[in-house]
Design a protein around this nucleic acid. Structure first.
Length: 581
RNA sequence: GCUCCUGUAGUUCAAUGGAUAGAACAUUGGUCUCCGGAACCGAAGAUCUGGGUUCGACUCCCAGCGGGAGCGCCA
C-alpha cells in the first residue's frame, strides 16, 4: 500500500470531508491540523474549538461527533482531549510502512516535488566590486544559496543571478585616486583587492572633506557612464580583480551562479525605464530629478523613489527596474526573489509598487516579487559592520580560520591522517559550522559577530549533525551493509526510542514546507537538529548490532533513513557531510 | 518628527493563536568493559511594563519604556 509523503494534508482532508456529511458542520470548518506534542499524539486538529464557539455549540460534543464519524483505520488511533482537541496517533505498523516507503534518498527527493513548479530568479550575494567581501556579506550568499536549493529540490527551475554592484559611485572615487596617484592596476602585489579597497577608503575620507575632490570624483563617474575609453578600461580591470577575489570565496562556499549580470549590464536599458514611466505618467520631475510618488501609500506619497538623479545619472532604482523587466522578458521569470539586508526594505517596497504600475499600464503580468530580507551583522559596538572607514573582518579570513580550527580538531582525533585528508574534512566541517551558525537563526534578526558563535562545533551546530551522519556510516561499515539495502525483516518500532525517532522522520515534509512557505531556512535547521538529537538518544539506548534479525533490520532502517534525511537536509542548507570525521 | 523592525533563562537562540514556553553555551550532578565522548542522562534557570481582544496570547490590538533601522540625489 502507498502512504503519502506529507501526512498532514491527508488528515486535514479526512476531517474536512467527514465533517461535511455531518449536521453540525459546514464548509467553513477548517480542521487546523498540525503536528502534535508527542505527549498527545502525532497529529492534532484544533479547528473544532473556534468553529463550535462561532456556532454556539459545545466543542467537546461536536468533536466527539466528528470522531465517531471517522472511518476506522488500521493506520492510526484517534482520541478527544482537553476542551476539544482531536489527536491522532500513528500505529507502529504504519510508521514502519511510511519509513520503508519514503525514507531513502531517492524517495525523499521524488516525493518532495511540487505539483506546480515555477521559474524563479534568485538575486543574491550581489557584492559591490572594488571592495572586498567582509563578514557582513556572508548572509545574502548563504541564505540565498540555501533558498535556491530548497526551491530547486521541489522541482522549481532556478536561475541564480549575482547582481553585482559594479556601476556605482565607488568608481568615481576610485578612478580619481588611481589617476591622481598614477597607480598601475597590473602591479598591485599579492592582494590586489585589498589595495583597491585601501584606495577607496582613503578616497572616501577625502571627498568628505574636500568639495573639489568630490566634484572631480563625480565627474569621473559621469565620464565612465558616458563611455570614456580610459575609464572603461580601468573599470574592467577593477571588475576582474574583484571577481577573482569573489570566486575564491564562492568556491569555498560551493556557490555557483548561472549569471553575474551586474548593474553595468543594464546601462543601455535605463532610457527605456525613463521613457516607459514617463509615458504612463508614473514618474515626475522634482528638483531636477526624476522621481516616483505613490499617493495611495501613507509614506511613499511623500518619500520619493528617485529613478534619475538631477545630474542625469542613473542609480540603484533605475537599474533595478531595468533588471526586473529584463528578467521577465528574457527569462520569463514567474517569481523574482531578492535576498538583501533589511535596511533596503523601503527601496524594494517602492520598487515593487512602481513595477506594478508600470506593468499594469503596459498590460503585462508582473512576476511575483519577494524581498527576502535579513538582519544586519553588528560589530562589538552594536553598529553595523561597514567598510567605509573601519577595518572589518574579511570574509575570506573567517572562512580560512574556520577551516584551520576544524583541521586542529580533525588532527587531534585522527593522529595519522594524511594532511590532504585532514584539509578535505576540515573544509566540510569548518565551513559547515559557519554556514549553520548563520542559517540556524531567524534571518530577520540582527546579531553581533562573534568568532565563538561562528566557529562553535558542539551543541546545536553543523558538526553535531555531521557527526550523526558519520556515526551512521560507521555502523554500516561495521555490519557490512549499505544504507541503500532494503530491510525486509524489519519489525514495527516498539521501544520508546524507536518510536520517537520514527515519528521525527515523518515530520521532515512539514519542516521543508514551512521553510519554503516563509523562505526561512532556520525551520529546516531546527528540525534537523531535533532529528539528530533524537538519533543520538536512540543510538545510546538501542544497540544496532544484535542477533535479533527483525529488531536489527528495523534499527538499520531507522539509521539509514535518518542519514538520508540529514544528508538531504544539510545539502539544502549548502552543507556537506562526511563518511568519517 | 514620520515609518518600520525588535525586547524570551547569566549568554546566544527556538516556539503556523493551542495543552506543562523548547534548545545550545556557561554552571552543576551522573554515564566511560558503549556499534565513534564533536556523545548520552539529570538539576537549576526566562516571555520588558500596563491595559485590551480570545474558550485559549511569547504570538494579535492599544499605550509606555528600552534597543536598532529607514526617510531626495549611496547601494
Amino acid at each position: 500500500m502507498s502512504t503519502s509523503f506529507d501526512l498532514l494534508p491527508s488528515f486535514d482532508e479526512l476531517l474536512y470531508h467527514t465533517a461535511q456529511s455531518l449536521d453540525g458542520f459546514n464548509e467553513d470548518f477548517d480542521p487546523q491540523t498540525r503536528s502534535a506534542d508527542e505527549r498527545f499524539g502525532d497529529f492534532q486538529a484544533n479547528g473544532v474549538l473556534p468553529f463550535a464557539k462561532k456556532a454556539g455549540k459545545n466543542p467537546r460534543e461536536l468533536a466527539q461527533i466528528l470522531i465517531d464519524a471517522l472511518p476506522p483505520s488500521e493506520n492510526w488511533t484517534v482520541d478527544l482531549a482537553g476542551p476539544g482537541f482531536i489527536n491522532f496517533t500513528l500505529t507502529p505498523k504504519f510508521l514502519l510502512e511510511w519509513i520503508s516507503e519514503h525514507g531513502s534518498d531517492s524517495a525523499i527527493s521524488n516525493s518532495a516535488h511540487s505539483e506546480s513548479p515555477k521559474k524563479v530568479v534568485l538575486d543574491y550575494s550581489s557584492p559591490n566590486t572594488a571592495k572586498q567581501m567582509h563578514v557582513g556579506h556572508i548572509r545574502s550568499t548563504i541564505i540565498g544559496e540555501s533558498i535556491a536549493r530548497i526551491l530547486a529540490f521541489q522541482g522549481n527551475e532556478i536561475i541564480r543571478d549575482n547582481h553585482l554592484g559594479d556601476w556605482g559611485t565607488q568608481f568615481g572615487i576610485l578612478l580619481l585616486a588611481i589617476k591622481e596617484q598614477k597607480i598601475s592596476l597590473d602591479d598591485l602585489g599579492d592582494d590586489p583587492i585589498a589595495q583597491l579597497e585601501d584606495l577607496y577608503r582613503q578616497g572616501n575620507a577625502r571627498i568628505k572633506e574636500d568639495e573639489v575632490a568630490l566634484a572631480k570624483a563625480r565627474q569621473e563617474l559621469v565620464q565612465l557612464q558616458d563611455g570614456d575609453p580610459e575609464n572603461l578600461q580601468l573599470w574592467e580591470k577593477i571588475r576582474d580583480i574583484s571577481m577573482s577575489s569573489f570566486l575564491k570565496i564562492y568556491e569555498l562556499l560551493d556557490v555557483k551562479f548561472d549569471h553575474s549580470l551586474g548593474e553595468s549590464f543594464y546601462r543601455d536599458q535605463v532610457d527605456e525605464v525613463y521613457q516607459g514611466l514617463s509615458k504612463h505618467k508614473i514618474c515626475q520631475e522634482d528638483d531636477g530629478a526624476l522621481v516616483v510618488f505613490h499617493p495611495e501609500h501613507k509614506r511613499f506619497a511623500k518619500q520619493p523613489f528617485i529613478i534619475r538623479k538631477s545630474d542625469g545619472a542613473s542609480n540603484y532604482a533605475t537599474t533595478d527596474l531595468a533588471t526586473l523587466t529584463y528578467r521577465q522578458k528574457e527569462w520569463q521569470a514567474e517569481q523574482i526573489i531578492y535576498v538583501t539586508d533589511g535596511r533596503q526594505r523601503d527601496h524594494f517596497e517602492q520598487l515593487f509598487l512602481t513595477a506594478q504600475k508600470w506593468f499594469d499600464a503596459d498590460k503585462k503580468t508582473l512576476p511575483t516579487l519577494s524581498h527576502v530580507w535579513f538582519g544586519t551583522i553588528l560589530g562589538d559596538d552594536n553598529k553595523a559592520i561597514k567598510t567605509r572607514d573601519g577595518q572589518p573582518i574579511k570574509l575570506i579570513d573567517l572562512l580560512e580560520e574556520a577551516i584551520r580550527r576544524a583541521a586542529d580538531m580533525v588532527k587531534q582525533k585522527n593522529k595519522d591522517l594524511p594532511e590532504e585528508e585532514v584539509q578535505r574534512r576540515a573544509k566540510v566541517i569548518g565551513l559547515g559550522a559557519v554556514k549553520y551558525a548563520d542559517l540556524s537563526q531567524d534571518r530577520t534578526l540582527d546579531y553581533v559577530f562573534s568568532w565563538d558563535k561562528m566557529l562553535a562545533m558542539q551543541g546545536n551546530t553543523a558538526p553535531y549533525l555531521q557527526y550523526a551522519v558519520a556515526r551512521i556510516s560507521s555502523i554500516f561499515r561495521k555490519v557490512e551493509r549499505s544504507t541503500e539495502d532494503s530491510f525486509t525483516h524489519a519489525r514495527p518500532p516498539e521501544s520508546d526510542a524507536e518510536r520517537k525517532l520514527s515519528r521525527k522522520l515523518l515530520f521532515f515534509p512539514l519542516a521543508l514546507k514551512q521553510a519554503t512557505r516563509e523562505l526561512k531556512p532556520h525551520f529546516l535547521c531546527t528540525y534537523l537538529y531535533e532529528l539528530a538529537t533524537e538519533f543520538s538518544s536512540f543510538y545510546n539506548q538501542e544497540k544496532v548490532m544484535i542477533d535479533d534479525v527483525k529488531a536489527k533490520d528495523l534499527r538499520l532502517l531507522l539509521c539509514a533513513s535518518t542519514q538520508s534525511v540529514l544528508k538531504t537536509g544539510l545539502n539544502l542548507l549548502g552543507i556537506d557531510t562526511l563518511e568519517e570525521m
